[in-house]
Design a protein around this nucleic acid. Sequence first.
DNA 1: ACCGTGGTTAGCTTTC
DNA 2: GAAAGCTAACCACGGT
Lengths: 104, 104, 104, 104
Amino acid sequence: MSENVASFPVADSPSAHDNEQPKTQDVGGVAGQRLASFIERIERLEEEKAALMEDIKEVYAEAKGVGFDVKTMRKLISLRKMDTEKRREADELLELYKAAVGLA
Amino acid sequence: MSENVASFPVADSPSAHDNEQPKTQDVGGVAGQRLASFIERIERLEEEKAALMEDIKEVYAEAKGVGFDVKTMRKLISLRKMDTEKRREADELLELYKAAVGLA
Amino acid sequence: MSENVASFPVADSPSAHDNEQPKTQDVGGVAGQRLASFIERIERLEEEKAALMEDIKEVYAEAKGVGFDVKTMRKLISLRKMDTEKRREADELLELYKAAVGLA
Amino acid sequence: MSENVASFPVADSPSAHDNEQPKTQDVGGVAGQRLASFIERIERLEEEKAALMEDIKEVYAEAKGVGFDVKTMRKLISLRKMDTEKRREADELLELYKAAVGLA
DNA sequence: ACCGTGGTTAGCTTTC
DNA sequence: GAAAGCTAACCACGGT
């Protein structure tokens, strides 16, 4: 039933009691600036991420260049990752058992 | 000429009984070490990527904390990204034209 | 670069060699009927899937009702699934090695 | 598929010698069997679900094969689903009203 | 009772 | 063009 309605919901600030309207379009007032700031931060991080992904591709390419099989490498890495995750989950399961059984 | 680098200097098969190997897995020798190095580099980069993704999630969380709608933000960013890509493609097209016409 | 354009692209039939174009715009024509048929099939399958998911939830609920910890159960099942997948992937990796090394 | 059914991994102590009967603690006993049964039922249902998902993919593939745009189809179906849910919710609301007013 | 969290599912990208 | 891996949206659960 409940449906969020507001896509730009927020007052211009958490504790918005500063009455001076910035003149410059209050859609895009303090809240707008804050939003812009968040957006920028995220986009910056996304850029870094993209760069990293690029780097990864390059490493694969380099490996391929000296004769390794990329697909195999990927599989290997995936397997290693699964190991890691599985161990982590197994640990969690153990904790869960302990909790379920009343051993804090 | 059988060049073991150009093909795949693979470890002997899983069913091997090569257990008592000296420290530095000489299965595959130099190539094996090289492979290990690639793997490590990739896994390191993947870790960084994961950390970045974590950061991004945190920024979204912070934005949410002050009242912004995350889903909307995502859409916004995605839209901006599309714009960027579109422009980039347009630029590429322009370069192509220039090249085709002899303008370096 | 390439971007698909047509959202309702299709000719009115796979083996469309019947040249007589129906003149009357095929939106809702043979192709439309065919599309409707696909949609129905998918929606039917989705329904069955939803029913199955419901069943699963019920089993969990029943288990919970007799005292088992649902979260633990989920983890357990997830772990078992990981085992299965990991084995499958390990096999694939082996095949990959063999192929990379030239062993059909 | 899965063979080790009685796998009830952790629970009883790591070095549990199964010679001694389970005393009061029912690890691996009746409760264990019951748990195994639940697990099996769920895994069976999950398998069916996976099969269904496979079927759905195949229908999409078939549709694509005769020229329909899968992405568009997905959107369409999603839209229809939203409609359905909306109507269902509206009906529920109506029921609620009726109940509130004393109309069974 | 709501929010936050984690897990699941679906969609998209990229690879082969 | 198909298959897979990755990412993002969704949903149900438990905590506060």
